[in-house]
Write a protein that binds this DNA or RNA. Structure first.
Length: 465
RNA sequence: GUCCCCAUCGUCUAGAGGCCUAGGACACCAGCCUUUCACGUUGGUAACACGGGUUCGAAUCCCGUUGGGGACGCCA
């Protein structure tokens, strides 16, 4: 049943004679916040486009009038920018209704778009009936047998039809950029509804019209769209599109960390939430670009990831989005981050000395604030029963300023000689009194930042607490 | 229910019949460094889902089972 298709050509020629440039699109629907799943698709589109020297189109698929919201559209763009993605062109589908209507007329003229009157309840009943019989729940094309008289009568009664696309009945094959040779048998699918009774177009239709009219060369999306691809290629050809002009790339879906569908975790994995949690965008993009591939993840903003990105390295099986792994990347990123790259997000007054002292102890950049309090603010040390005498001795042994990296060594060395303490017994009470924490940055670096006044005050407080 | 896809360490994966006593990265554990924790560094533990074939030889090929994911919308 496979229909003959010429072998793919290397590049398409356009008027002017040059090889046509790549053009990719990211087409989210503004019905919710962007999450790691569609962020990955957006990133893959962007990376591929930039790698091929092509253009990126941001298309808002807002034909679902029930659920689409302007606030989400704005949030989407903001989140994409946070990720470091940009685009060369953008439009929303609700602005192109006339184009879809024109395309629909062409389809009607060629007999590929036919009116239907069955109600949603009727369709649901038929679907369930077929399911009970163990047959695929596809539409029976009953409306194709409707006479013009029946349609007229319905219209006279105020009932408008909705419109289905008549699938060609072949098997559609394509060479997928990730999955390889794939095929969809059209006879096992329902003729898709393209136009609602109120005249509004549906996704399957608008997407193909737009891909065609905006000159898209590569469609990169999640594997949940493979069946759609069969339908869309059929539609593409019915609208006069050259099937060789469009390449499809389907990325295996992301699973949650337990291996279940990502959908139930979408709230906590929205870009909004991750940003609020203090994740560095470069950790997320670096993770997303490597997840499900044979490449080791390296933190980086999109431009830094372009060269390395390679569809050939993408696996065919679904991958788990592991927050712990993303966090590990975030940590490594922070540990080697230069002061200048984080400067404006650090507490007012923070300098390179402070940053270099604490960065190795951060999981999230926001934690720097806590160490800034330790260095320059107020710390209430916890009570250390039985350590009063030792802490008083420490206070008395505190050397005069100026302090530097060696101050800690000199001070604790003197204390060691005076008290006979060493190791943990020597250091832990001091760390606790000075920072309020039992772990943290090297005190060689931290102590000079705290300074004698604060150190003395904390030791005094800890000794009496 | 029907159809499609997938299956190697905890996680992401290398592996395209002998180069595999299965390699790497992250995580984890340990040693070292540091007179403390962390940082850093070095090393280690850890996997071919199961059952049948094919073959001199299978993680690799075939079939089945199991498990997971997806599709089957007047959603996208």
């Amino acid at each position: 049943m496979a229909r003959p298709r010429p072998a793919p050509r290397r590049g398409r020629r356009r008027r002017g004679g040059g090889v046509s440039a790549m053009k990719l699109r990211f087409a989210p629907s503004p019905t919710g916040l962007l999450h790691v799943g569609n962020a990955r698709v957006a990133l893959a589109n962007w990376l591929l486009a930039r790698k091929g020297g092509g253009a990126v189109l941001l298309r808002l698929d807002d034909t679902d009038t029930e659920r689409s919201r302007a606030e989400y559209a704005a949030a989407l763009e903001e989140d994409l920018r946070w990720l470091g993605l940009d685009w060369d062109e953008s439009f929303r589908q609700s602005d192109r209704l006339a184009r879809y209507a024109a395309a629909a007329e062409r389809l009607k003229a060629s007999g590929r778009l036919y009116p239907c009157l069955e109600s949603e309840e009727e369709l649901r009943f038929k679907r369930e009936q077929r399911l009970r019989q163990g047959r695929p729940p596809i539409y029976d094309r009953a409306a194709l047998k409707m006479t013009p008289e029946q349609l007229e009568r319905a219209r006279a009664n105020g009932k408008e039809p909705y419109w289905r696309f008549k699938l060609s009945g072949t098997s559609i094959e394509w060479e997928d950029g990730v999955l390889g040779r794939r095929a969809v048998k059209l006879p096992s699918l329902s003729d898709p509804v393209l136009i609602r009774a109120d005249g509004s177009p549906l996704y399957t239709f608008t997407s193909v019209v737009d891909d065609l009219e905006s000159g898209i060369t590569h469609v990169v999306r999640g594997e949940d769209h493979v069946t759609n691809t069969g339908v869309q290629i059929d539609l593409w050809e019915a609208l006069g599109g050259d099937p060789e002009a469009l390449r499809f790339v389907h990325l295996p879906l992301l699973l949650d960390s337990d291996g279940g569908p990502l959908s139930k975790r979408l709230g906590s994995l929205s870009l909004r939430q991750l940003r609020r949690d203090g994740i560095e965008p470069a950790a997320l993009t670096g993770y997303l670009a490597a997840l499900g591939t044979s490449h080791d993840p390296v933190p980086g903003m999109p431009p830094e990831l372009v060269e390395r990105f390679d569809l050939g390295a993408v696996s065919h099986s679904p991958a788990r989005f592991d927050v712990q792994q993303m966090l590990a990347l975030n940590r490594h990123l922070l540990h080697t981050a230069e002061f200048e790259s984080v400067r404006e997000r650090l507490p007012e007054g923070a300098d390179p000395a402070f940053w270099n002292a604490v960065r190795g102890n951060l999981d999230l950049l926001g934690e720097a604030k806590q160490w800034w309090e330790v260095a320059r603010g107020t710390v209430v040390p916890p009570a250390q029963p039985g350590e009063g005498e030792f802490l008083r001795a420490a206070l008395d042994a505190l050397p005069p300023e100026p302090w530097d990296k060696e101050t800690w060594t000199g001070w604790t060395g003197a204390l060691k000689g005076a008290t006979g303490r060493k190791g943990k017994a020597l250091f832990l009470p001091l760390r606790l009194a000075l920072t309020g924490e039992d772990h943290g940055p090297d005190l060689h670096d931290l102590l000079p930042l705290i300074g004698r006044d604060r150190a003395a005050q904390r030791l005094r407080m800890a000794a009496t607490g």
